[in-house]
Amino acid sequence: MSSAVDILGNIMKRLFSKLALVASVAAASTAQAETFEVSDKTTLSLFGAIELKYNTADEISDTDGSTESSSAYEDNGSSVGFGAVHRFDNGMSGYAEIEFEHNANDSSDGGEVLTDKAFAGLIGDFGEVRAGRFDSIYTNAFYDLVDPFETASLSEESVMEEDNLIAYFSPDFNGFTFELQARVIGDGDNVNESGSNETGMAGVVKYSADTWAVHAGVDDRGAEGEEVNGEWVSQDPVYGLGVAVALTETVDAAARMSIQENLEGSAEGDDTTFYGASLNYNYGMGSVYGAMQQVDPDQGEDRTEFAAGINYDVVENLVVYSEYGSYDPADDAVGDIDTQFEVGAIYEF
């Protein structure tokens, strides 16, 4: 996972600058990527991170709201990845990237290495086309506005899974851009329990000005079905609206609202609404950041979540941070985290 400085920097860069297509390909998942010129037309990159944290958490242990504390020294998403860009004679570029997550604290012989992202695409004056496993355009456009955190992230609405994806990213039209994404699950895929072809669609529209930006979008979650009373039922849509503002050269603010329609019979009623806001102050050697969110189900108790953090750039590529989160779960939500605190370090290469 990137540092909070990088996360906020990437968000504001997407929101407040024009879409630089070729630059977005040349940069892999992290700005620290080492690049190698294989030829005049082909560039390879290597990137990764070691992320460790010490975490303490209070979890709901009984239906009367009692909590039990636990702590752990653990990995927080260490990764290694590879990328490639090939520039064609017609001005377009093809690219590919794969990133693996591993547990840097796992000393067992059978430590798992999992594929986090794997995709390929084509980029040019027409925009960008991408296929594979990558971050959801809906999550990037809305949830990331209020998620500058390494660990203390607030609740997230349900969106389509980040696999079997095909996406299109438009060029910039005087500040306007749009993104489209489809998740295609065929009847031969193991993840498809319906026995038929399923397709989910998502779309986001963005407008960016000099110091502010606004987003609107929808994810129909059409391929996110589940079995209810013996019948395959597709998930209902989630809608989002987000805005970001550069208040000063060092202070950024953002807010978002998402409405998640729930399956019939859900304990949360017809829908659940998420209202969130975040603030980030860059003090030069790092950032102080925080976010608050109201989660309002149609039925049942609403909750107010809060998290804050601070990070510091020790040396180039090395960041240390501390975060606290309070999540206000229901008293009978056994296993849910009530509060947590952590300190951690991230070395990127």
Rank of each mutant, 00 (worst) to 15 (best):
A254R: 01
S2G: 06
F306G: 05
F16L: 15
S107N: 10
V22A: 15
F169E: 10
A246N: 10
A345F: 02
D220K: 03
A307M: 06
A291T: 03
G81E: 10
S17N: 14
L180Y: 01
S155M: 00
S258A: 09
G94Q: 10
Q181C: 02
H86G: 05
Q32A: 13
D328V: 07
A345E: 07
M257S: 08
V238E: 02
A223Y: 04
D163W: 08
S170V: 03
Y327S: 03
D89M: 03
E193I: 05
E74L: 09
D40K: 15
A182L: 12
A267Q: 09
I50V: 15
M257V: 15
K117V: 04
G240L: 00
V288Q: 03
V314Q: 12
I137S: 03
K18W: 04
V218P: 01
T304H: 01
Y283G: 09
D298I: 03
E51K: 14
G225P: 09
D147F: 02
S69I: 02
V343H: 11
N10D: 14
G127I: 07
G175V: 04
F47A: 06
M12D: 10
L180M: 04
I346M: 14
E231L: 11
V38G: 15
L318C: 07
E162T: 13
L15N: 13
D338T: 04
V233F: 05
L8V: 13
R87K: 14
T339M: 02
E34K: 12
S322C: 06
S66A: 12
I337R: 10
W232E: 07
D106R: 09
G9E: 11
A28V: 05
Y95R: 09
E157F: 12
E157K: 05
Y289G: 06
D147L: 03
S70N: 13
N90G: 07
G111C: 01
S24E: 15
T177F: 01
L52F: 01
E97R: 08
A23C: 00
S196M: 04
D189W: 05
E227G: 00
F341C: 01
D144Q: 06
K13E: 13
S71E: 12
G121F: 07
L165T: 11
I259W: 07
A223C: 08
D219K: 09
D296Q: 10
G9Y: 07
E112T: 06
N164A: 15
V228L: 13
S70G: 12
D210S: 04
S287F: 00
F274R: 02
D270L: 03
N190C: 00
T273Q: 09
E74H: 08
G81D: 09
S194C: 04
G195R: 11
I137N: 05
G265Y: 09
L180G: 11
Y54D: 08
S39E: 04
V38H: 10
S61I: 02
D125Q: 12
D328T: 10
G77Y: 02
Q293A: 05
F134D: 11
I185T: 14
A23I: 00
L318V: 14
V320Q: 10
A131V: 12
D40P: 08
V288M: 11
Y207A: 02
A57N: 04
N164M: 14
G83M: 02
D189E: 15
Y275L: 14
D270P: 01
Y54K: 05
V205Q: 01
P148A: 12
P171A: 06
F169Y: 14
A277H: 04
F82Y: 14
F176V: 09
S278F: 02
K206E: 09
V22L: 13
V245C: 00
D163N: 15
S79I: 08
V315M: 11
G94I: 08
